[in-house]
Design a binder for these strands. Structure first.
Lengths: 335, 335
DNA sequence: TTGTACGCGTTATCAT
DNA sequence: ATGATAACGCGTACAA
């Protein structure tokens, strides 16, 4: 109840609060005798350090914010685990918030972080975030790392994966299996990530002297059901398609449903590739061939970079792009 | 850079800091004229409220901690989403930490919460947590809600699901499909949740005058691979088993792998039921019949209860047990 | 409405 | 060499 303060400890040890503070931080020149006396009092009174008071005095804090749209998405959960580990390693506390793609909630969270004097943040910005949001952030001058969703704005640190290379790998895989009629399914129209992934896909086709067909490129929401829906429409109109690169695994799983429904066996009659390598990808039958983006590593690297910024690292903004890898399972069949 | 304080705002508006504070909180009787003047200054100077200072003065905070073993587990991710939503609703910030079943990390997190003067916490305690940990928590007297893992200690609020009823539902389902040789797979030996789930399973068997066979009850780690491993050993020794209730979905998915490997079709040659209803359960083929525990709702209810405790609700500790529901998919076949 | 003591740890300055 | 003094960070709320 009655909180024990430095003053209480100091009284008991017969020293000043300054001395106790110094002992706590192993700073200054304190004789071994007093040090022991202070430690004893500290222990006897069950002193609990008041970080709030220290933070106020130091105009600092040990608290970092993480904003996602949806922690329920296994990709982000993995990333969070990586970041959390890194934060713990540096004795930082991690605030978590889900924006659910709402700019309002995003703003609310960031405001809250400012008020609480957070020392840094990791953001995966909501889709329709206005430039003003980022401008305001810059003025605040608080270390901020953007993750996963690439931003045009180069003034921010960024950690993500190489979307372009990822779909290149995927497309190359399909091409070398002999496919020539390859669709691209998923992603929302205005997404930068999608543009990059589409770029990898189309560039690979062109490299092989194949004309990308814009009719075979369709968007979808980030859900299994919508993936299934758009795939159905696509395959009905263009039965000549024999393979597809999907924007993300969730969508690919939906496409798989549609294929089955049409009596088409993925991995035999059709070749399907996803993106993200979420846990589900290894669980479905046939196993989904996909592009792995090392989600946990993104979190870890973001944490590392953020920590260095908090420590005062003021090098120009960095872009850390982690290499993706093709994970071959059964959904594309065998050579 | 130079932080704007209440004093600055007060100066500019030609009033005292007390007045500004009152305007900020809509407290006291301030004339409309001064109120507007203050609001104007607030805006012009771009004032940011310093929650840290307020917290220090009030000996309070708006920060809550959540401890899990693994945010990567979809069950906990869902729960976190529910809690996060509830916290946001009450303008509380949520600290997240993964213990990964380490008592040390758990202790470290809780200590950190104490130092930071958190106003409450939600804990899913690590497996081998010593009673001393809970005793110390009680002395601290900080609102704490235990979740998911039932505790013997009745001095804490608890929110979880009815494990016993859950496996009763599952077992009943298998029995009514005609199965008589039913195994119980998964969970770690010393877990209370497991004891409860095993209780539901065995009581149902007894109710139907079937002797539970302890050889058909096997433990496993909370992973697909270990589920597969123990299932393989079990089925080899006891080929007469035709159905299984699993401790959790992850394990059931592993069992499914083993079945397939043995040329056994789940839902046709074998009936399988999981527990948790994680997303993957609906994605595999055949869809996994399972017991749903409303993970998100657990988070929400924990948040609600915690908030009421923070508000001063000092009723005796509550145990909120959410009813589970059987989700019938295809892994048990059809009648 | 205001003046101001207060919450508690920090650290520069001063004293022995 | 050791350690004390006290102003300070900034919002709060009571007495005036």
């Amino acid at each position: 109840m009655t909180t024990v303060t430095l003053a209480h400890v100091a009284d008991r040890a017969g020293v000043s609060t300054a001395t106790v503070s110094m002992v706590l931080h192993n700073r200054g020149r304190i004789s071994e005798a007093t040090r022991l006396r202070v430690l004893k009092s500290l222990d006897e009174l069950g002193y609990v350090y008041n970080q709030t008071a220290a933070n106020l005095r130091n105009r600092s804090s040990n608290q970092v914010g993480l904003l996602l749209h949806d922690i329920t998405n296994p990709f982000y959960a993995e990333m969070t685990a990586g970041l959390s580990q890194e934060m713990e390693h540096h004795d930082l506390l991690l605030f978590l918030a889900n924006s659910e793609e709402s700019g309002e909630r995003q703003q609310k969270f960031v405001d809250s972080l400012m008020r609480n004097n957070a020392c840094g943040m990791v953001l995966c910005a909501a889709k329709e975030t206005p430039p003003l949001f980022f401008e305001a952030l810059k003025r605040r001058n608080i270390p901020t790392i953007m993750v996963v969703r690439p931003l045009d704005d180069v003034d921010f640190d960024f950690v993500g994966t190489d979307n372009f290379l990822g779909t290149q790998l995927a497309t190359q895989h399909l091409l070398s299996l002999g496919h020539r009629h390859i669709a691209f399914i998923g992603g929302s129209e205005n997404s930068v990530s999608r543009a990059q992934r589409m770029g990898g896909y189309s560039s690979k086709l062109l490299e092989h002297h194949i004309q990308p067909n814009s009719n075979w490129v369709v968007a979808s929401l980030a859900s299994q059901s919508d993936g299934a829906r758009v795939a159905e429409a696509l395959f009905e109109r263009y039965p000549e398609i024999t393979a597809a690169v999907c924007y993300q695994d969730i969508v690919a799983l939906g496409v798989m449903q549609t294929l089955r429904k049409m009596g088409c066996v993925p991995g035999k009659d059709f070749a399907l590739i996803g993106f993200d390598d979420i846990t589900e990808a290894s669980l479905v039958t046939p196993g989904l061939t996909t592009v792995s983006v090392a989600s946990k590593e993104i979190g870890r690297q973001a944490g590392e970079l953020l920590f260095s910024r908090i420590q005062g690292n003021d090098e120009p903004p960095k872009r850390i792009i982690l290499p993706p890898a093709l994970i071959v399972r059964e959904s594309c069949g065998f050579r």
